[in-house]
Design a protein around this nucleic acid. Structure first.
Lengths: 179, 179
DNA sequence: ATAATTTCTTAACAATTGTAAAGAGATGCT
DNA sequence: AGCATCTCTTTACAATTGTTAAGAAATTAT
């Protein structure tokens, strides 16, 4: 579900639908099975889970990216997290059945999917490595340098949990950063 | 490179070799291209990288597991990290060429490899989530509960970096834990 | 527009972690 | 065995982060 999977979607127009939803729309709730995957035409999405009463956001998605609770969509197991829009969004919505149909009938699709899975593996490993190697200040600086759009479009409280710190600590780091 | 890939290795015995190496043998050095993958018959291995003069260990491997610098082995890019034995080890060593030969000629191999990649994606995501959600104490407790063999077989200084803390801090946490 | 709500910042204090250094303990080498 | 080296623990102090609470700023709703 990344850009390499954008191949030939238009010929399957009857297998997915385009929907428009407001901000804070829950696309998949923690504990439920993901029967749909989404592709973001416009807007932002976050993935988060409940942690002792507080929300921990661990991934953000924007235009041109695919979103689903991967392992739930793949295995049929209940999702460990919620997927929710950050803003009003326009999405392509496809069912698991139709997704599999396309995967089975499109040459190269599964190879592209495998590559996307591999790239996401590298992405998560990088996030883990940054966590054990870098300080919160360094992680914030990396975010500013590499993914400034996240800072512009995601509320700071969500970014704080993504960085593994509290909103108060993030605010202090930002304060230092200005000087 | 996990247990599901153990299928039918014996019929390819001329495509890999079994080697025995002492502790602290570097199987792949940071900056070099991974031309071989390994399967651990006996012993332990760690993956680490240089971080401002200090070593940061981010993964440990033992009997029955496959080891390689994944993306280097796959893409031919220089590896970002070093792979080194923790103890004397007995390993199966296979070249990239022979690995691809087997992958191409064994039905189901690529599907099993894809599944292994997916499982490792989930593994790294879990590590990342533990980092942003749990305290160092909680992460240590999880290690004690879920992977006690790591504590028994890996020097504490390496475990400390894996938990994202200093050896001093780990020592303090262990001290508290005894009580 | 105004009020209500939510988000972000700031401050004070407690708790945790990092750093540096010293000593104890374990391991390895000849 | 004895020496040297490496690892782990402990201590003291500095720096950072978490927690709680209050106020400022921004957003949302009516």
């Amino acid at each position: 579900m990344n850009q390499s999977l954008l191949i030939a979607w238009e010929q399957y127009r009857d297998l997915y639908e385009e929907i428009s939803v407001p901000a804070r729309t829950i696309l998949l709730e923690e504990g439920k099975v993901a029967r749909y995957a989404y592709y973001i035409r416009e807007g932002g999405v976050r993935a988060w889970f409940n942690n002792k009463g507080k929300e921990t956001s661990f991934q953000f998605f924007f235009e041109g990216e695919g979103v689903s609770a991967m392992e739930s969509f793949r295995t049929g197991q209940p999702s460990m997290y919620t997927i929710e829009t950050l803003s009003a969004a326009r999405l392509l919505k496809i069912s698991k059945e139709n997704f599999d149909l396309i995967a089975d009938s499109t040459p190269g699709f599964k190879a592209a999917l495998e590559e996307a899975v591999f790239q996401r593996l590298l992405h998560y490993r990088k996030l883990f490595v940054c966590q054990i190697r870098d300080t919160p200040q360094e992680r914030y600086a990396t975010l500013v340098a590499d993914q400034p759009h996240i800072l512009q479009r995601v509320p700071l409280q969500y970014i704080a949990s993504y960085l593994g710190i509290t909103p108060v600590s993030l605010s202090r780091i930002r304060n230092k950063f200005q000087k």
